[in-house]
Structure formats: C-alpha cells, structure tokens
Design a protein around this nucleic acid. Structure first.
Lengths: 106, 106
DNA sequence: TACATTTGCAACCGATTGGTTTCATAATAA
DNA sequence: TTATTATGAAACCAATCGGTTGCAAATGTA
C-alpha cells in the first residue's frame, strides 16, 4: 500500500472529506451523502486517510466517527516551510546585492 | 490530462524536482543526474509540473532551464489556510465556553 | 429471538500512472 | 557539411487507482 499524505490529498474526494470532518467528526454514512459515489467508495477513501493517519476513528456503538488529525495536516505545512525558507534566502541575497550596490556608490 | 497541483506534488520524484529547482533553475539533463530514472522520465515529470504551472521554462540555446513558479506553490498554502481558519474557530468556541463558565461563577 | 442498520473487506473492472525504449527535431561543435 | 548534444513526443507495459457489487460481522431494535 505504501501511502503518504501527499498521495492522500491528491484525490479531490479525499480533500473534500478532510474539509467536511475538519469542523466536526462524521460517520462514513453521513459523509457518503455528500458525494455521488457509493458508501463503500467513501469507506475506501477513509481507509486510505486512516492509513496515513490524517484521520482518527472513534467507535460509538455500531457507528464510527471519523475526525481530522490536525497534527498530521501540519506535516504538509512543514513541507511548504522548506520552500518558504528558500524564498526568504533568495530575498536576503537580493538584499545583499542591493546593499553592495549601495555601498559602492559611496 | 486534467492535472492539478495536488496530483502534481503526489509523486516523490516531482517533489524532489521542485525542491532542486527552488533555489536555482536547472535543465532536464542536470535534473536527471539526481535520480535513478531515465532523462525521459524526468522530462515527463517536468511536463506535468509545467502543465499545472508549478514550473516555468526559459530557453537558452538548445538548453531549457526549468524554474519554480513560486506563486503557484502558494496555492497549496491557500488550501491549508482553510483548515487553519477552522482550527482557529474551534479554539475561539472553546474560549467562549470557558468565558461562559467564568461568568457563571460570578 | 428475528430483523434492520452500520460498517469494512474482497473480488472485479476500466482508466490512469510512472516507467521504459525508440524516434524526430533543433542547436551547437568539429 | 557532418557529428554531437539537448530535448520532447510516441508507443508500449506492468502496477496502481478509484469505482462497483456482493458478502460477512457486529450492534441496535422489534
């Protein structure tokens, strides 16, 4: 299976599921009502999301509530952070160039 | 084809490419040296990244330099922003509950 | 107990994915 | 000119994806 968060959020249905359960936990049945696909298809998506720990399950009788795992979502943010750092450095280098030019003027 | 950024960053090779060209533009040949796959495979990845405008090309003679399109990367950040807002609201609601409890004490 | 509900799993299927090899084109070098 | 280099496109292939249907297990209700 070998799934990771980036593969998990690649599918639009899974992104929609994450958004739905972000504000409150939901059951697979309740989630399936929001999509054109079958309940089983939604169940499969939930399995993938659970595999990479983007969601956690809470059993309540025969119902299972799926909830967003916020900490895992932040892992995507962490990946983006790499790029932010590079952009900042790029701007810093630009600053240095500008400073050098400024000093040469004197 | 119908590709979007989330599908684009789902592949680990493509994420590595983005990271490599984040600091400086690179040619397909130079990029391919960093991977175990063929140059053509890297070329295919670049095509996908270009299709969803995550990279832009700069021709220089017979070489083509691929460069990261920063603005497009921020679109991923924008998607994450939705979740940040929901989390903030959740905390605000918790604040309200705590405030209500506090006021009831008086 | 008998029945309905909620859920996950397995088997299957067509479409897509990421890789390969081969070929064509354009720019540079000899 | 001729050869070399850099690149993209096309054809093909095994593996994976996202969907379906059917079934089994567990819980709740009559």
């Amino acid at each position: 299976m070998r799934r990771d968060i980036f593969q998990a959020i690649a599918d639009p249905t899974r992104r929609a599921i994450l958004l739905l359960i972000a504000s409150q936990a939901m059951t697979p049945n309740a989630l399936a009502e929001h999509f054109d696909t079958s309940r089983q298809a939604v169940s499969k998506h939930l399995r993938i999301l659970a595999e990479c720990q983007l969601v956690k399950q809470k059993q309540s009788g025969r119902e299972i509530y799926y909830q967003l795992e916020v900490s895992k979502m932040k892992q995507i943010d962490l990946w983006l952070e790499q790029f932010r750092k590079i952009w900042e450095n790029r701007f810093n280098e630009l600053d240095n160039v500008l400073l050098t030019l400024k000093n040469k003027k004197k």
